[in-house]
């Protein structure tokens, strides 16, 4: 068991490294090259005026492809990390911040690669892979004793319901990360029409598709969470801050969906709602640091 836990950790380390390099490659690809041209003129009065113009050129396609390859590595190693740990613990690793952050790294790699494949665009990687890499940095920062496998406290032993609840949450957050990335690129593209970025229409669609996956998943999270709470604590809903934080996130995306389908809002405003939505996701994810309550894993 010790060996498996170690192997899981080494796989995680490999995944972290791969995602780190992947984000750099994607950035090189998405940001493109900037060529600055300087012109110096001397005016009749003798002062020199320097003006510079920046030309944006598309990034290196090779860098983008390298990014994809490394994201695959990142995903496969995250999968191995989860797999080894699942074998060692005889359950999915979902019981503490170390474990489900590991699952998150896996989920974000999967969701990202799916979107990259469907839309055939790599620019989102510059943001999504960076979020994945940021998550691995967070995992590094966690106290090492979380890497030990500990048995679950009674309230967390809800088997399939708990597993479904937490994994839906992780996949929902991962898809929201994709829509966040699309929203950012949307805002960038609508401010400066950078030629090689995907079209606004496609970016809007990526964001919307991601929300159409994330929103039902988040609905499931709320439903399964309340079923679980009902079994463990006898209440469906106790207005616990972690619950209400998820509810807030859900409502933000409900606002997004309404404004998008109905009011024919221009993309910019929709994109800004998506930024707020992802901020809410982060707030919900790290809610444990702010709140006590049932979800603090402090015991019954």
């Amino acid at each position: 068991m010790e060996t498996l836990v170690q192997m899981s950790f080494y796989s995680f380390a490999a995944s972290s490294l791969a995602l780190g390099v992947a984000s750099l490659s994607y950035m090189l690809y998405a940001v493109g090259r900037v060529r600055v041209r300087r012109a110096t003129m001397t005016t009749s009065t003798g002062t020199t005026v320097t003006s510079s113009t920046a030309d944006f050129l598309p990034g290196n396609i090779g860098a983008g492809q390298f990014g994809t390859l490394l994201t695959w590595f990142g995903g496969v190693f995250a999968f191995l990390a989860v797999l080894f740990r699942t074998i060692a613990a005889e359950r999915l690793p979902l019981s503490n911040m170390y474990e489900f952050s590991l699952m998150f790294v896996l989920a974000i790699s999967i969701m990202y690669l799916i979107f990259e494949r469907i839309y055939g665009i790599r620019h989102l990687g510059a943001i999504v892979a960076t979020i994945g890499f940021g998550m691995t940095l967070y995992i590094w920062s966690l106290p090492a004793d979380l890497r030990e496998i500990t048995p679950l406290i009674p309230a967390l032993q809800a088997g399939p319901i708990m597993t479904a609840h937490v994994s839906s949450a992780i996949f929902a957050y991962a898809t929201f990360a994709v829509s966040f990335a699309a929203a950012i690129l949307y805002l960038v593209k609508s401010k400066r029409n950078i030629r090689w970025l995907p079209s606004l229409e496609m970016l809007d669609d990526v964001a919307f598709r991601a929300v159409t996956i994330g929103f039902p998943l988040l609905s499931l999270v709320l439903i399964l969470g309340s079923v679980w709470a009902h079994d463990a604590w006898g209440v469906y809903w106790s207005w616990d801050p972690k619950e209400t934080a998820a509810l807030f996130t859900w409502l933000v995306y409900a606002v997004y969906l309404h404004t998008r389908t109905l009011r024919g809002w221009r993309g910019n405003r929709s994109a800004i709602i998506l930024l707020i939505g992802f901020a809410a996701v982060i707030f919900t994810y790290y809610g444990n640091y702010f709140f006590g309550g049932l979800h603090s894993y402090g015991g019954v």
Partner: peptide, 11 residues
């Protein structure tokens, strides 16, 4: 959503 946020932050 705003009320839920206010209620959440209260905790």
């Amino acid at each position: 959503a705003l009320m839920v946020l206010l209620g959440t932050l209260r905790g």
